[in-house]
Amino acid sequence: MTRKKQNTMQENIKRKRVERIIHGIFLMLGLITVGCVLLITIYLVVSGIPAMRTIGLKEFLLGRKWASTAAEPKYGILPFILTSIYGTSGAILLGVPVGFFAAVYIAKIAKGKIKWLLQSAVGMLAGVPSVVYGLVGMMVLVPWIRKLFKVPDGSGLLASIIVLAVMILPSIIKVSVTALEAVPPEYEEASLALGATPIETYFRVSVPSARSGIAAAVVLGVGRAIGEAMAVMMVAGNAPNMPSLFESVRFLTTAVASEMSYSSGLQRQALFSIALVLYFFIMLINAALNFFLKRGNVKKL
């Protein structure tokens, strides 16, 4: 009898140990995401800082000329920074109004089959691989721009802006629709009861109460646009010019992507520095996004 009791006690100790080990394993799995963020940050900082030091921070960030393979190489990334900013702003200017109105339509007016159809369309747009956007942009948009504006080459900032605008459309619409649908119907009913028309109600009541969510949608779009590489690579022309609508340009992302495969030495290090600058922008945008998401109480999709 005592023997048996001893056995169960040993059994229990064993069981407890197993439970602790399993708990530890799950804790580690849980911390993987944290580890990944740290890994990415550390790698980018460690590999991105040296070139900035060698080149000089001011020279690097504000230099207007990038000539990494010239006899006397120049590493100024101001053209890339400005292109990324202009390109993203352009895409937002173009994409946000369309996305916003489409979102109000989907969330408030469309019913039944039409609503389903529109939502499927948005879902499909989100699922199209970015290289397909790039390909279509390259084969359709670029020739159009060339003909329409009578410029020697259609690829450049304008083509990139249009492609990016299309690409951020689904994220903007999805998040805005979620935010708009979360508006309590009582608000709208109150406004309707006061004699406001439905349209007035949607824009005076629904949209203002969903403003944080809509702001989050816009910020999310900014993040998507500034981070997109492949589609832009196929339509931007990729010459390191200062940004201009019809000029061939290079974004922060495409600067990294286009030279990575044949880079070496300081040039390669400089590419890491560009990635670090891009990462810095992304972190700012993430912080803004989190701020709006928390305030708007909507989930990112």
Binding site: L39, Y43, A229, A257, M260, L278, L289
Partner: peptide
């Protein structure tokens, strides 16, 4: 952990490519 996951989902794929290559 949740903040880290949020952050990960906001990082552009080109940066993943770069760090993936390095690591």
């Amino acid at each position: 952990i949740e903040y880290a996951a949020e952050t990960l989902s906001g990082i552009p794929s080109i940066i993943y490519g770069l760090v993936g290559m390095l690591f």
